[in-house]
Amino acid sequence: MTLDKGIKYVVENCNIPLPEAIYMVTQSPLTAIRANRKIGQIANGFKADIVILNQNLDVLETFINGKSVFKKDKG
Protein backbone atom coordinates (compact mmCIF):
# COMPACT_ATOMS: atom_id res chain seq x y z
CA MET A 1 0.00 0.00 0.00
CA THR A 2 1.33 3.44 -0.86
CA LEU A 3 1.45 6.17 1.76
CA ASP A 4 -1.33 8.22 0.14
CA LYS A 5 -3.59 5.16 0.05
CA GLY A 6 -2.76 4.41 3.69
CA ILE A 7 -3.71 7.94 4.71
CA LYS A 8 -6.94 7.71 2.76
CA TYR A 9 -7.73 4.34 4.37
CA VAL A 10 -7.27 5.48 7.98
CA VAL A 11 -9.23 8.69 7.37
CA GLU A 12 -12.14 6.89 5.72
CA ASN A 13 -12.19 3.64 7.72
CA CYS A 14 -10.65 4.34 11.13
CA ASN A 15 -12.30 7.70 11.88
CA ILE A 16 -8.93 9.44 12.18
CA PRO A 17 -9.03 13.15 11.25
CA LEU A 18 -6.89 14.08 8.23
CA PRO A 19 -4.50 16.38 10.17
CA GLU A 20 -3.81 13.59 12.68
CA ALA A 21 -3.26 11.03 9.89
CA ILE A 22 -0.79 13.37 8.17
CA TYR A 23 1.03 13.91 11.46
CA MET A 24 1.21 10.16 12.05
CA VAL A 25 3.02 9.56 8.75
CA THR A 26 5.24 12.65 8.79
CA GLN A 27 6.19 14.09 12.16
CA SER A 28 5.89 10.96 14.31
CA PRO A 29 8.48 8.97 12.32
CA LEU A 30 10.82 11.96 12.12
CA THR A 31 10.59 12.47 15.88
CA ALA A 32 11.23 8.77 16.49
CA ILE A 33 14.51 8.92 14.57
CA ARG A 34 15.30 12.41 15.88
CA ALA A 35 15.40 13.92 12.41
CA ASN A 36 12.63 16.47 13.01
CA ARG A 37 15.19 19.23 13.61
CA LYS A 38 16.51 18.99 10.04
CA ILE A 39 13.69 17.81 7.78
CA GLY A 40 9.93 17.67 7.51
CA GLN A 41 8.88 21.29 7.87
CA ILE A 42 8.11 23.95 5.33
CA ALA A 43 10.45 26.49 6.88
CA ASN A 44 13.71 28.24 6.13
CA GLY A 45 16.67 25.94 6.64
CA PHE A 46 14.64 22.71 6.58
CA LYS A 47 14.61 20.06 3.90
CA ALA A 48 11.07 19.02 3.04
CA ASP A 49 9.63 17.07 0.15
CA ILE A 50 6.00 17.94 -0.56
CA VAL A 51 3.05 15.95 -1.87
CA ILE A 52 -0.04 17.84 -3.05
CA LEU A 53 -3.31 15.93 -2.59
CA ASN A 54 -6.79 16.75 -3.87
CA GLN A 55 -10.04 16.55 -1.85
CA ASN A 56 -10.22 12.81 -2.53
CA LEU A 57 -6.65 12.39 -1.19
CA ASP A 58 -5.30 11.49 -4.63
CA VAL A 59 -1.75 12.64 -5.41
CA LEU A 60 -1.74 15.61 -7.77
CA GLU A 61 1.93 16.59 -7.63
CA THR A 62 5.11 15.61 -5.81
CA PHE A 63 8.13 17.84 -5.16
CA ILE A 64 11.52 16.48 -4.11
CA ASN A 65 14.35 18.89 -3.34
CA GLY A 66 12.18 21.72 -4.66
CA LYS A 67 11.63 20.13 -8.09
CA SER A 68 8.41 18.67 -9.41
CA VAL A 69 9.01 14.96 -10.00
CA PHE A 70 5.41 13.89 -10.58
CA LYS A 71 2.35 15.68 -11.87
CA LYS A 72 -0.97 13.96 -12.50
CA ASP A 73 -2.36 14.40 -15.98
CA LYS A 74 -5.54 16.47 -16.04
CA GLY A 75 -7.13 14.11 -18.55
Rank of each mutant, 00 (worst) to 15 (best):
A35Q: 15
L60D: 13
I42Q: 07
N65Y: 04
D73S: 13
V11C: 05
L3D: 01
G40F: 00
I64Y: 04
I39S: 05
Q55K: 15
N65M: 03
Q41F: 06
Y9A: 05
P19K: 06
T26R: 13
S28D: 10
A21Q: 04
K71D: 05
F63N: 07
Q41R: 14
T2W: 04
K74N: 15
V59F: 07
N65R: 09
N44S: 13
V51S: 02
N15M: 06
G66K: 07
S28Y: 10
T31A: 14
E61C: 01
G6E: 09
D58P: 01
G6H: 06
T31G: 05
E12V: 00
N15E: 12
R37G: 06
I39P: 01
I52S: 02
N65G: 11
L60R: 14
I39F: 09
P19V: 04
N65L: 03
V69C: 09
E12F: 04
I22N: 05
V25W: 08
F70E: 08
D58K: 14
V11T: 09
V59D: 01
E20H: 09
G6N: 05
D58C: 04
G75L: 14
T31W: 06
F46P: 02
V51I: 14
A32D: 10
N36G: 02
P17I: 07
K67L: 09
E20Q: 12
Q27G: 11
V51R: 00
I52D: 09
G66D: 08
N13R: 11
K71C: 13
M1S: 10
L30S: 12
C14V: 01
V51W: 05
C14P: 00
G40P: 06
F70D: 11
D4E: 14
I16Y: 04
K74G: 09
I22G: 00
A35G: 11
P29W: 03
S68K: 15
K47E: 12
D49W: 11
N56C: 03
A21G: 03
I52F: 09
P17C: 03
C14A: 07
G75D: 13
R37C: 05
C14K: 11
A35F: 09
I7L: 08
P29F: 01
P17T: 06
A32M: 13
P29M: 01
D4K: 05
A48L: 12
V11D: 05
Q41V: 04
K74I: 12
K72V: 07
K67Q: 15
F70H: 12
L3I: 14
K5E: 08
T31M: 11
Y23D: 09
K72P: 07
K67M: 08
Q41M: 09
F70N: 10
M1H: 05
I50F: 01
A32F: 12
V69W: 11
A43D: 11
M1V: 05
D73N: 15
E20M: 10
P29H: 00
G66R: 08
D58A: 08
S28G: 01
I52G: 04
A32C: 08
V59Y: 11
I33L: 02
S68A: 14
V59W: 10
N44E: 13
